[in-house]
Design a protein around this nucleic acid. Sequence first.
DNA 1: GCCGCCCTGACAGAGCGCTGTCAAGGTCGG
DNA 2: CCGACCTTGACAGCGCTCTGTCAGGGCGGC
Lengths: 122, 122
Amino acid sequence: MTALTIHEAATTTGWSPRMLRYVEQLGLVEAPRSAAGYRLYGPAQLQRLRTLRALLDEHGLELGDVGFALRLRREPALAGALDDWFDETPAPPRTTGSPGAPVPDADWLAFEQAKHQQLLDR
Amino acid sequence: MTALTIHEAATTTGWSPRMLRYVEQLGLVEAPRSAAGYRLYGPAQLQRLRTLRALLDEHGLELGDVGFALRLRREPALAGALDDWFDETPAPPRTTGSPGAPVPDADWLAFEQAKHQQLLDR
DNA sequence: GCCGCCCTGACAGAGCGCTGTCAAGGTCGG
DNA sequence: CCGACCTTGACAGCGCTCTGTCAGGGCGGC
């Protein structure tokens, strides 16, 4: 099938083989493996690599930045902690019933949903 | 009122004066200024500095990471581009009416709202 | 008026991220 | 079977981030 080796994928996407392994190590584009362990780059992976490059160029990002964004998606607790910190400043948002207790943590999903709902209600 | 100089704020929060200026430069904690330009740290800023330290320690973050998270909040286009890239992989999401055109960009907010709505609908 | 703190700007060094390159060994196609 | 490719692991250098420190000048309280 249409599956390229790492060297072929590198030349067609503009990355270097070394960088393709690094990108995979960051968890950004993981190529399936052959029985012998060779990385196999299919159309999906190639597309992903090209759009990744465009993303970096367009917004002046680095791979580490995208890696951090990935971490935000994999660790919702981290994303929630950041949300809380950024929302902390303006005013005591505890206008709803529950007082200032640090969120029972079981209600965390509902808490985040409420926050997203606020985003939608505008 | 209760407003500390940068040196006092540093000793009570555990940061160094240098780092307080750096944190401000990153846009994370900005202290109001006196008429002469002195930074004035009130309770709000002190609280923010302490919780910032806790945030870093708890999740093993660096200041630059939080700075990047701030950038994500200030540049919704960047956040949207990352969302799109991460959502790109699983399946062709163009199941709704509009074909593969790169989103008319005026509908961008609605597009993101729809995506958030999917998050809420679970 | 003086001494101590504040400001900005700059330089410096430690550390880390990114990228290339090499080594030792396995796999594949002619 | 041989040459070209792949694997992982390691090391090296460039550049950037982070943090401290210093210089030159202003502000403030005793």
